[in-house]
Write a protein that binds this DNA or RNA. Structure first.
Length: 875
RNA sequence: GCGGGCGUGGCGGAACUGGUAGACGCGCCGGACUCAAAAUCCGGUUCCCUUCAAACGGAGUGUCGGUUCGACUCCGACCGCCCGCACCA
């Protein structure tokens, strides 16, 4: 009697093979159907997939399968972000070749991803460490160089002492390297930069049009780009020890100019350094500032400190008004002009500084409703709006008007024959330093010649390939100490020259891989214009929020640079739709001595005191700790391989998508997985039962349907409408709830069958509902869906079956159930004809027992009727 | 400090643009099947009051107030948690 269990292992292997052989997931560039490009952020080949990957790729696969069923030509590719430091670390530890290590990892992870049953076009697979890939990247670097989008300059850079390489600003998190976690040091090095700042304005403005991006990500990018509109003003210096004539400062508050008390220079401002040459104690102060600047702890606690240079600057509106010039620890050389004027009354930092050095303050902006004669500033600067006071010709103006007036006057004023001030827009965004002093990355295709300087590698010599005979027995860059690799002849003069030994930041590799997927077979060029135009932008990109700035900003820059150099003529924005999924988190377990224990080693028991955890071996109790992101250090990871082996890929996918909204963290629990596994078996039993009661495929639609048949049809079509809507909006958890609901209703309908023979209309309804049901869960549980589809006698694959079309007329009811409230509280239900007029509804509502009881004889003041929704009786 | 998000049963979460709060799942409780267990199936499950049981009733979406016929949803203040940025002139 018992239905056979669904054998996940056999079925999943079988259908994966079928998909593979039939090539259903291969996307053709010439396909005439409308295109849809869905992409998940490609993985780093660490060696094993983790649950975060499972979640990410399960989501993308649902979208891909759903859109395919919707009739789209879907591109859903996969590749490997294959360069990077872990390969070198492995090389050091295991004496392996980074390339061999990487490719072995790729093979292992490819097999794991395939076991998930993802609908990926594997014919387009790429690895960024493949010379066939990075050759094009080198070509683009040279094109960017020719187009003026590459810079080589000496600058202060973030140096990671553990990874022994430079990091971009975006890769420094809280003063530490994003990968090593080591406190970052400042070093002065000559580096290659991509001029992302050239596109700052466009990168900022275009954010407004990315309406299918999370607002949070757009905001983070907006803040990162950090546009500020202000005025740079040149202050003349009174004659003094130095022969300097002026200081240029930057301000966004020119309206407060009459509140000025001092000027301040960054410790590394050129003028400060010159002054220090004559003043040893200033030099000492600057040295101290530089020391502090590097440690993050110092920044938080740093007091405002300064040193009077002795220089005096003339106020732009009053040449007799002299302002002291300080070097101050809170002024940054990297921002604006590295110099400010201080207005203590209206800037908190300036106030703290002025109070520390007894410089006083003069309020020049009076808040609304405050008496200007008594308005005083003590410890808190007033940074709000108001009316100008103590400000000569600006008195009485608003802040806005005062700004305009100062700008107008100073732009017209001359100092040494040039305008004294000019409006300036400043961005926080710095150029992207891409030089890395590492081996396992894309070589920068440059040759250094003593005679000719920096010479690009000729295109015909590309790719500049990494050598394989390198040693990792000492720290530093193996490329730099390779005996022969860097020795070349200069392409220009033919003399002896050396290769650039820096490689590119791996974020360059990931800045254009999504373009390469559109035609990975093009050996001659990075992209094929027709393919790019056809597929891009990516319609739905899915990945972690941790790339909100790094990868997503770099890619937006890169497509612009590619557009400018003819590699993506029609493209500006790479990702039309972005979705950032939450993390996979899990309980932690610790023994009495504080050591972490992995979930695989413990069992959970529910007792009278709630849940308790024990180590299986020896039944020793462990403490259940907080729920945290899965990580090796907390030992709270769950291995996808083990889950797939014991429960199947469909179970893992279903659970990943079911419990939490996709943008939030999902808590991985053993109970949850078991629930999903139980549902897989339940569906299989239900499918068996449906197969017995359903009409054969192609059975004609009967002319009339009985009430039970209509109920079944209604349930199926209602679920269809909802699931479709939820999947379109990536609300996987809701879609799954609808599917559970439909399964419950179908089970109940089968249980309700009484007659020994089932009427044709009921059989037809079951048939229709069964076919809809399978296609609804197919995007999430594709293997079970194929097995079910075959069970129902369909010849083709459900992966190729079109999405069913909902019949809206089946969902609409003849009668509606209107809740009736009295004074906003529900007191009764009113079942009434759908088209009943308001008078009839009111009459019927007032006649209800529950309503009469609640009214208790009180007179009715008013009856609010919202058609199809609700009735509210006000008494 | 600045900016943003979030607070709903024992738990994860539903509730479309203000209209029946708690869909669906997990867990738990009870029952059926079984020698027993697992699996499966059926029923119950916000809290309080009343009750053999129910009906009826009351309270309820972090707290306090407001707008509205009606508030998880809108507005104001506060409390708590999370995230991003941070001496940015």
């Amino acid at each position: 009697m018992d239905a056979p269990r669904y054998n996940t292992r056999e079925a999943e292997a079988k259908w994966q093979k079928k998909w593979d052989e039939s090539g259903v997931f291969l996307a053709r560039n010439e396909d005439p159907r409308p295109k849809y490009y869905v992409l998940e952020m490609f993985p780093y080949p660490s060696g094993r997939i983790h649950m975060g990957h499972v979640r990410n790729y399960a989501m993308g696969d649902v979208v891909a399968r759903f859109m395919r069923a919707q009739g789209y030509n879907v591109l859903h590719p996969m590749g490997w972000d294959a360069f990077g430091l872990p390969a070198e670390n492995a090389a050091v530890q295991n004496k392996t070749d980074p390339a061999a290590w990487t490719y072995a990892n790729i093979a292992a992870m490819r097999a794991q991803l395939k076991s998930m049953g993802l609908s990926i076009d594997w014919s387009r697979e790429i690895a960024t460490c493949d010379p066939a890939y990075y050759k094009h990247q080198q070509k683009m670097f040279l094109d960017f160089l020719a187009a003026g989008l590459v810079d080589r300059k000496k600058s202060k850079v973030n140096w990671d002492p553990v990874d022994e390489t430079v990091l971009a600003n975006e890769q420094v998190i809280d003063g530490r390297g994003w990968r090593s976690g080591a406190p970052v040091e400042q070093r002065e090095l000559t580096q290659w930069f991509l001029k992302i700042s050239a596109f700052a304005e466009d990168l900022l403005d275009s954010l407004d049009r990315l309406d299918r991006w999370p607002e949070k990500v757009r905001l983070m990018q907006r803040n990162w780009i950090g546009k500020s509109e202000g005025l740079s003003i040149r202050f003349a210096l009174a004659p003094g020890k130095l022969d300097a004539r002026e200081i240029e400062i930057y301000t966004t508050r020119p309206d407060t100019l009459f509140g000025a008390k001092f000027l301040a220079l960054a410790p590394d401002h050129p003028l400060a350094e010159r002054a220090a040459e004559r003043d040893p104690s200033l030099a000492a102060f600057i040295a101290e500032c530089n020391l502090r600047g590097t440690s993050e702890a110092a920044i938080e606690t740093a007091k405002k400190r300064g040193y009077d240079t002795g220089l005096r600057a003339r106020h732009p509106f009053d040449s007799d008004w002299l302002l002291p010039v300080y070097v101050a620890n809170f002024v940054l050389m990297e921002y604006g002009t590295g110099a400010i004027f201080g207005c203590p009354a209206h800037d908190q930092r300036d106030l703290e500084f002025a109070n520390a050095y007894g410089l006083g303050n003069t309020p020049v902006i009076c808040p609304p409703g405050i008496d200007p004669t008594t308005f005083k500033i003590a410890d808190e600067a007033y940074e709000g709006d108001g009316t100008l006071i103590n400000a000569r010709f600006l008195d009485g103006l608003s802040v806005e008007a005062a700004k305009k007036e100062v700008v107008r006057r100073l732009e017209a004023a001359r100092l040494d024959g040039r305008p004294q001030a000019k409006r300036q827009i400043h961005f926080r965004l710095r150029d992207w330093g891409i030089s890395r002093q590492r081996y396992w990355g894309c070589p920068i295709p440059i040759i250094h010649c003593k005679k000719c300087g920096v010479v690009p590698v000729p295109e015909t010599d590309l790719p500049v390939e990494l050598p394989h005979d390198v040693s990792f027995d000492q720290p530093g860059n193996p490329l730099a100490r390779h005996p022969t690799w860097k020795q070349v002849t200069c392409p220009t003069c033919g003399g002896p020259a050396t290769r650039e030994t820096d490689t590119m930041d791996t974020f360059v590799d990931s800045s254009w891989y999504f373009l390469r997927f559109t035609d990975p077979w093009n050996a001659a060029a990075p992209t094929t214009e027709r393919a790019v135009t056809h597929w891009l932008p990516v319609d739905q990109y899915i990945g972690g929020i941790e790339h909100a700035i790094l990868h997503l900003l770099y890619s937006r820059f890169f497509t612009r640079a590619m557009q400018q150099t003819g590699h993506a003529d029609s493209l500006k924005e790479p990702f039309a739709g972005l979705f950032t999924q939450g993390m996979v988190v899990h309980e932690t377990y610790r023994t009495a001595d504080g050591g972490y224990v992995s979930p695989a080693e413990i069992s959970i028991e529910s007792g009278p005191e709630g849940r308790c955890a024990f180590i299986r071996e020896g039944h020793r109790p462990v403490e259940i700790g907080p729920i945290e992101k899965m990580s090796k250090s907390k030992r709270n990871t769950v291995d996808p391989d083990e889950i797939i082996a014991s429960y199947g890929a469909d179970t893992a996918r279903w659970f990943m998508l079911s419990d939490s909204p996709p943008e939030r963290d999902v808590i991985w629990t053993e109970e949850g997985v078991q629930g999903a596994a139980k549902f897989v078996q339940r569906v299989w039993r239900l499918v068996g039962e449906l197969a017995l009661v359903a009409a054969p495929e192609g059975a004609p639609s009967p002319p009339r349907f009985s009430a039970p048949a209509r109920e079944i049809r209604k349930a199926a079509h209602a679920a269809l409408v909802r699931v479709e809507d939820d999947l379109r909006r990536l609300r996987f958890n809701r879609a799954i709830a609808q599917i559970y609901d439909l399964a419950n209703k179908l089970s109940a309908a089968i249980g309700a069958i009484e007659a020994p023979s089932i009427s044709p209309d009921l059989r037809f309804a079951f048939r229709e509902a069964a076919d809809i049901f399978v296609r609804l869960f197919a995007p999430m549980m594709p293997h079970l869906a194929e097995e079910s589809w075959a069970q129902f006698g369909h010849a083709g694959l459900v992966a190729e079956a079109p999405w069913p079309v909902a019949e809206k007329s089946l969902i609409a009811e003849d009668t509606v159930n209107l809740p009736v409230q009295v004074n906003g509280r529900k007191r009764a239900d009113l079942v009434i004809e759908r088209n009943a007029d308001t008078a009839a509804i009111e009459r019927a509502a007032l006649a209800l027992d529950g309503v009469r009881r609640a009214l208790d004889g009180k007179p009715v003041k008013k009856v609010v009727i919202v058609p199809q929704r609700i009735v509210n009786v006000v008494a």
